[in-house]
Amino acid sequence: MDLPLIWFIAIAVLWIGYFVLEGFDFGVGTLLPAVGRDDTDRRVMINSIGPVWDGNEVWLITAIGATFAAFPAWYASLLSGFYLPVLLILLALIVRGVAFEYRGKGDTDRWRAWWDRAIVFGSAVPTVLWGVIFANIVRGVDMGADHVVDAGLLDLFGPYALLGGLTTLSLFTLHGAVFLTLKTDGDVRRRSREQAMRAGAVAIPAGTAFLAWTQAAHGTAWTLPVAVAAAGALVLGVVLAARGREGWSFTATAVAIGTLTVTLFGSLYPDVLPSSTDPAHSLTVANAASAPYTLTVISWVALVFLPVVVGYQAWSYWVFRRRVTREHIEPAPAYGGGSAAAGGGDAPASPGSG
């Protein structure tokens, strides 16, 4: 068995899971000021992702852990070149997690407004930077024979990378807006559909241009139909959202994100980090992989634990499958009052409120 190739595919699947699931979380957070006209609306939005957002981040942790275990040279070189963007993403994710917990701990508009800004920051920053990082990985970076990335921070923000960041920002915002139309009702649902149209107006041209650029510069024969499918699913998702077909629209935007990720990883293979300095210095699936024994051990670990994680997460989505409305939101108590769930104001206390 070609274990390095299997683990390259497995890591791609993990990133697909992360971008599809955490993508709508990021979209909801980014849309907080645009859709939520008052505190109750914003709590409806936060409650819609309250039971699942932290579980969705498990896909990121697993993807990074799998990269470290299966391709340690890839992991080390990535950090040598993308340390500051990754650190900023990590800080943004921490700020967002703290904001979800703390925004309901004070009973003043000013207190909640600051934590709402933190949620927007913690959602928008990773959304843009993941697009920038993956665009640079596919494009290639200045890297010598020692596999240390020599590119500076500003070198990472070229036209292709910025287009990648705009694509992920608009696509995840669209995905989050469609999720809100599927998971909420009333004015929040109506305004979310309006925001889906606005996000789609950016996501379609940006995503199509990014896919075309990726295919023309880095793609292969088999990535072409995948890229076309990604662009088609993106357009279809917007059309279905406009017609009120929320479930199918969400499926289409999820497919668009998944096929976009497949296009990126397919364009990258057999490299895992191309060198723009000299192709001979590139890290490949073969030369960056761990020893066969290590790959065998982690393969057995994945076979045992991955079904458990997927099963638990699927069960969580099933339990909290109902729409969230303003009627499910209790008045926010003063600081220190009420139960933990009510005091936070941002996590459903029962399946019925999810």
Results as ranks from 00 to 15, higher is better:
Thr40Phe: 07
Ser267Leu: 13
Leu21Thr: 11
Leu224Tyr: 13
Leu240Trp: 15
Phe172Leu: 13
Ala340Ile: 10
Asp142Asn: 09
Leu224Ser: 15
Gly266Thr: 07
Gly50Lys: 01
Asp146Asn: 03
Gly23Ala: 04
Lys183Phe: 06
Leu88Cys: 10
Thr325Ser: 06
Trp115His: 06
Ile257Lys: 10
Val149Arg: 01
Met143Gly: 02
Gly27Met: 01
Val272Thr: 06
Leu169Cys: 04
Ile6Ser: 11
Ile133Pro: 06
Phe179Gln: 02
Trp222Tyr: 14
Leu32Phe: 03
Ile9Trp: 15
Ser290Tyr: 09
Gly158Pro: 09
Pro333Gln: 02
His175Ile: 12
His281Trp: 13
Ala124Cys: 08
His175Tyr: 13
Trp59Ser: 01
Pro351Leu: 01
Thr214Gln: 06
Ser339Tyr: 01
Trp300His: 14
Asp54Gln: 11
Thr181Gln: 15
Ala201Cys: 13
Asp25Cys: 03
Val238Pro: 04
Leu182His: 07
Ala221Asn: 12
Phe179Pro: 04
Ala73Gln: 14
Ser80Glu: 15
Gly144Asn: 02
Gly165Ala: 14
Ile9Glu: 08
Ser353Leu: 00
Arg43Val: 04
Leu236Ser: 13
Thr40Pro: 08
Leu163Gly: 05
Trp111Pro: 06
Ala10Gly: 10
Thr223Ala: 00
Ser353Glu: 03
Phe121Gln: 07
Trp315Leu: 11
Ala118Phe: 11
Ala302Asp: 10
Gly186Trp: 14
Asp146Arg: 01
Leu174Glu: 01
Trp74Leu: 05
Phe305Ala: 15
Thr296Lys: 15
Gly23His: 02
Ala99Asp: 00
Ala227Pro: 08
Thr173Ser: 15
Ser170Thr: 14
Trp111Met: 13
Val58Trp: 11
Leu79Asn: 13
Arg245Cys: 07
Leu295Lys: 07
Val128Ile: 12
Val138Pro: 04
Arg43Met: 03
Phe134Ile: 06
Ala332Trp: 07
Glu101Arg: 04
Leu171Ile: 05
Val272Arg: 07
Val58Leu: 11
Thr325Gly: 07
Val148Arg: 08
Asp146Ile: 05
Tyr160Asp: 06
Arg117Leu: 11
Pro333Lys: 02
Ile16Asp: 08
Val52His: 09
Arg322Tyr: 11
Ile46Trp: 06
Phe71Arg: 03
Pro85Tyr: 00
Met143Asn: 03
Leu87Arg: 11
Met197His: 08
